[in-house]
Structure formats: structure tokens, C-alpha cells
Simulated assay, not measured.
Amino acid sequence: MTQAQSIHPAPPAPLHVLGALALELRGDAPVGRQALAQTEVGALAELIAQDLAGFAPDAASLDLVTVGAHYDPVELLRPGWPLHRELDQLAARAPRAGAEGGRIVAFGSHEEQLPGALSPSPDHLGGPFRLVPFVLGGDAAVAARVGEAFERELLERGMAGAATALAAQQAFGLQVEHARYLTVHDLAAMMAMQYDHAGLASLWPLLETALLEPDGEHWLDQPPEPLVHYAAGEARIAMFEPRAWKQRYATDEPCDTPECRSRLEQQHRHFQARQRQIAAVLGAHGIPVNFVHCPEEGRAALA
């Protein structure tokens, strides 16, 4: 699914611009360092600020907030954008100088600990695509213009400067093949295509609802897929009793031979594995999952 195929209209221009420096790593590269010390992160942040001002000069008048750490895409793509929100909230406590123009606030580790809730999850280490998040904020009108420019430009021509890519590679100890900038909506579009290739295209509209409209509602009701209802900020997955599962997912023909029963058992095990896979994906995106016992028709129990 591409951005043009989104089930949601484009969101209004934000008061903050949310994005990331995306680092595409060599497949056999080592994990490297997860976080930079506070004394190291400033140089990388300065280069990021220069790059972003090159795409939209008004970005130089906004505050840039970033962190000397890199994350898996699922850590950024969560309802309410919690990692970006944490950056913004921590920056609000930082002192502001009287100079004109945007300030640069870059968080690093102290005694190997990042502030707040900025520590990358150990559950998502080692992937080939890592993200250094940033927030641009300040004057609402300027942020809106910069956000609109980034949504138009970054996906097509958002390559990071050579100095920035080299600095990130050396600082984190990674083997960076490509470095580019993305908005969170660009990142969501890329993730949608990845899930399509992974056989999870049917789940993406539900994930997209959770990301772009956390208070919204969406059903995954496409047999042979599990029945899932996203509402009130959680995903409810139907756990059918055997007869209800057979009525919904298996044939209505009599099944009175050992071969038929074995085939049904295998089909049911595959269905349960798919439920666990979907629950794991939703959980990785920070969406609470609730398995709901359904003795009969599932939609009524999940509503």
C-alpha cells in the first residue's frame, strides 16, 4: 500500500514536524552502539539540522530535537507517536537561550543511560533499517510550511549529506549503505509495502487506523484471516470455540474420516499460528491486544 492508497485522508498540517534520519545498513553489519554519550551527540545533531535546512530553509528557524540513538521502525510507528512525544516533552524542560533562530536540543546518554523513555528496546535490535528520530517545532505557521515541504520532498530527494552519513556510521559503529530523511508518514508508507511483501497486507489498514486515528475503529474481517476489531485503543482478537471456528473457517461438509480430521486439525493449528503472528505484530507497534472468547458469531463478542 502506498501513501496514495491510504484509507485515511491526509492529516492537517502539524504543529510539530515528526521525522527520522533513516540508516539502511549492510546486511551482515554488526549491531554497533545503540546510544551516543551526551558529549558526542551534538556534532551529529548539527549536521542533521544543516541537512534539514537544505530541504526547507524555514527549518532553520525551528527547534530541532533529536537523540543520539537508533531504533527499529516499530518503535517509532506507534499510536500517538510516543517516542517523538517523549523527545518533545524532554525538550520543553531544556533552557532556552535568547538568540534568534531555532535551537538544537540533542539528548545523549549519561553513565550509559538515556533520559526519560528514550532507551531503544532490546527486543528490536539488529535490524537492517535503523532510525534516528527528530522533532521540529516552534512557530505553528512555519512548522506547517516545513511539514508540507517535507511531505512533498523527502521521500523523493531526502538523501542525507555525505558528512552526516559518515558521522552516523562512525559514531554508532555501523556499516551504513544509505542514509536519508523520512517523515513519519513516509515511514508508514514504507512499512505498509514491507507488510504487503510479508503477507500482512490485510492487517495494515487496522494498523494505519491505530497510528493515524488512535480513537478510531477498524475491523479485520476477511476469512481465512483471524477476526480482529480495533476500537477504544486496543485490538480484540476473536478466540472461537471449535464449532464456531469450523462454521466460519472450515467446510460445512461432514468430516468423519481420520484424514479429514487430521486436515482440519492442521488448518486450525495454522489459524492459531496466524493469530499469534498478528498479535505479535500489533504488540510490537505498542497496540494492546485482548483475546476475546467467542462461543458463536465473533463480531457480536468483539463489538
Rank of each mutant, 00 (worst) to 15 (best):
Leu25Thr: 02
His124Pro: 00
Gln3Tyr: 01
Ile278Asp: 01
Met190Phe: 06
Gln194Ser: 05
Leu187Val: 08
Asp215Arg: 14
Ile104Met: 07
Arg157Pro: 00
Gly147Lys: 06
Tyr71Cys: 02
Glu265Ala: 15
Met193Glu: 15
Leu211Ser: 04
Glu75Gln: 11
Gly98Ala: 14
Ala244Phe: 09
Asp252Phe: 04
Ala92Lys: 10
Gln266Gly: 12
Pro115Val: 01
Arg85Asn: 09
Trp219Pro: 09
Thr2Glu: 13
Leu131Phe: 12
Pro95Ile: 09
Leu174Thr: 01
Pro12Ile: 07
Ala235Thr: 06
Gly19Glu: 10
Arg276Leu: 14
Gly27Val: 05
Arg236Tyr: 02
Ile7Phe: 10
Ala91Asn: 06
Tyr230Pro: 00
Ala117Asp: 09
Glu151Asp: 15
Asp221Val: 05
Asp186Asn: 09
Leu227Arg: 12
Leu83Cys: 12
Glu148Ala: 14
Arg263Val: 08
Ala189Leu: 09
Gly127Ser: 06
Cys294Val: 15
Leu125Ser: 02
Ala235Arg: 04
Glu112Arg: 09
Ala167Cys: 13
Ala198Lys: 04
Glu213Lys: 08
Ala273Ser: 12
Leu174Ile: 02
Glu225Lys: 00
Gly32Ala: 07
Arg103Pro: 05
Leu18Lys: 10
Ala13Tyr: 00
Ala56Pro: 08
Ala144Lys: 10
Ala279Leu: 06
His178Phe: 03
His285Cys: 13
Ala59Pro: 07
Met190Trp: 01
Trp219Gly: 11
Val67Tyr: 01
Arg78Ile: 06
Ala210Cys: 15
Gly42Glu: 12
Gly80Ser: 10
Leu21Ala: 05
Val74Ile: 10
Ala91Asp: 14
Ala10Gly: 01
Gly283Glu: 11
Glu100Met: 00
Thr39Val: 08
Ile237Val: 15
Glu297Met: 04
Val41Lys: 01
Ala231Tyr: 05
Leu212Ile: 09
Asp51Glu: 02
Val67Asp: 02
Ala22Asp: 11
Glu86His: 08
Gly126Ile: 02
Ala53Ser: 11
Ala244Tyr: 12
Asp123Ile: 00
Leu76Cys: 01
Ala171Ser: 14
Ala284His: 09
Ala273Gln: 15
Leu302Ile: 07
Arg274Thr: 09
His268Phe: 12
Pro242Glu: 13
Phe55Ala: 11
Pro9Tyr: 08
Ala97Ile: 08
Ser262Leu: 11
Gly27Asn: 10
Gln247Thr: 11
Asp51Leu: 06
Leu83Met: 10
Ala235Asp: 04
Pro73Ala: 05
Gly233Lys: 04
Phe129Ala: 00
Thr183Asp: 05
Trp204His: 04
Ala232Arg: 12
Gly102Asp: 11
Ala140Arg: 11
Trp204Ser: 03
Leu212Gly: 08
Asp252Gly: 10
Leu52Glu: 03
Gly98Arg: 13
Pro12Arg: 07
Val41Gly: 01
Ala45Cys: 09
Ile104Phe: 05
Arg33Gln: 11
Gln169Lys: 14
